[in-house]
Structure formats: structure tokens, C-alpha cells
């Protein structure tokens, strides 16, 4: 169970972890506690699976990667093998089976459009893949995964 302190800590650290010599000391000051306590609770929250990752989150576009969302219509009985085939690409970061005609959706990041095309061609050629939509984005309006814990 999350304590009230944990919730406050998570709300703060989701927004900003200082880039400085003693980042956890700075958080401790804001939360009016000790550096050791902050570190101890973060270890607990990480070990118990509340925190997925701590660190820098990079803007893929600014690092000159190209991203897209791809939707597939996968024939019944082929889902697992197609999903596992996609998972082998390091640039396929999120891969979800969803309800609806297009039943497998994944995001793909590549250095170039040629590489993307090559990967999509390989996926399209897989047995059981009936349709593929490449949904390219021109503009990101928001990317900010934050959950306010009360």
C-alpha cells in the first residue's frame, strides 16, 4: 500500500528529478524529510513495481528518430507468432492486442524512413497479417505520462 508520503513523493518525482549533485536531498527538502528516507522509499517503490523507470526521457524527434503507429489485422490463430515477431525489433517499444478489426497495434521508432519501410515490409510478409496501416504523425500535441495520486 502507498502511504501519503509515497504519493507526495511520486507526484513530485514524476514531474522533475533535479539534475544536480544531490538530487534526492533536494527532493527531501521539498518534502521536509531526510535524503535517506527519500532514497529508501524510492527503492521500495521501484522494487514493488510502482515505478517503471527513473531517469531522462528523451524526445525521439529531437534525437532524430522517426516514429509511427502501426495497426495490423491479424488472422485468428496467428496473434502470438506475429506479436512475437514484432517484439524482436528494438524500435518496436509498445505492442498491444486490442479489440476491433485492427487487433494488433504497435509503435515503431527507426533512424530512417528506409529502415521503417524495410521493417514494415518484413512484417507485412508474415503469415497471418491480413492488413497493415502505417499511421504517421505530423505533430505531437502532448506526451506527458503523469498520474496524480491522491
Amino acid at each position: 500500500m502507498l502511504t501519503n508520503f509515497d504519493k507526495s513523493l511520486l507526484n513530485i518525482i514524476q514531474r522533475n528529478l533535479p539534475i544536480s549533485e544531490r538530487p534526492f536531498l533536494e527532493l527531501a527538502k521539498i518534502l521536509e524529510t531526510t535524503e535517506d528516507h527519500v532514497i529508501e522509499r524510492l527503492r521500495y517503490l521501484k522494487e514493488h513495481g510502482y515505478i517503471r523507470r527513473i531517469g531522462p526521457f528523451f524526445d525521439s524527434g529531437k534525437l532524430e528518430y522517426k516514429g509511427t503507429l502501426v495497426a495490423l489485422k491479424v488472422k485468428e490463430g496467428y496473434m502470438q507468432q506475429v506479436a512475437e515477431f514484432i517484439n524482436r525489433y528494438p524500435g518496436a517499444t509498445h505492442n498491444y492486442e486490442r479489440e476491433g478489426e485492427y487487433n494488433l497495434w504497435f509503435t515503431l521508432l527507426t533512424h530512417s524512413e528506409e529502415k521503417r519501410k524495410q521493417i514494415l515490409d518484413e512484417i507485412k510478409a508474415q503469415e497471418g497479417v491480413e492488413k497493415l496501416m502505417n499511421l504517421v504523425s505530423n505533430k505531437k500535441y502532448k506526451i506527458n505520462v503523469q498520474f496524480k495520486l491522491k
Binding site: 522533475n16 523507470r53 531522462p56 526521457f57 524526445d59
Partner: peptide, 14 residues
């Protein structure tokens, strides 16, 4: 280049 420095939660657990 860094859009956020901080933590991302596992939302199901949260």
C-alpha cells in the same frame, strides 16, 4: 532532447 527528467509509474500498479 530530454523532455522529462523524473519517474514514470506503472499505471496499473498505481
Amino acid at each position: 532532447k530530454i523532455r522529462k527528467m523524473g519517474a514514470v509509474l506503472r499505471h496499473v500498479e498505481a
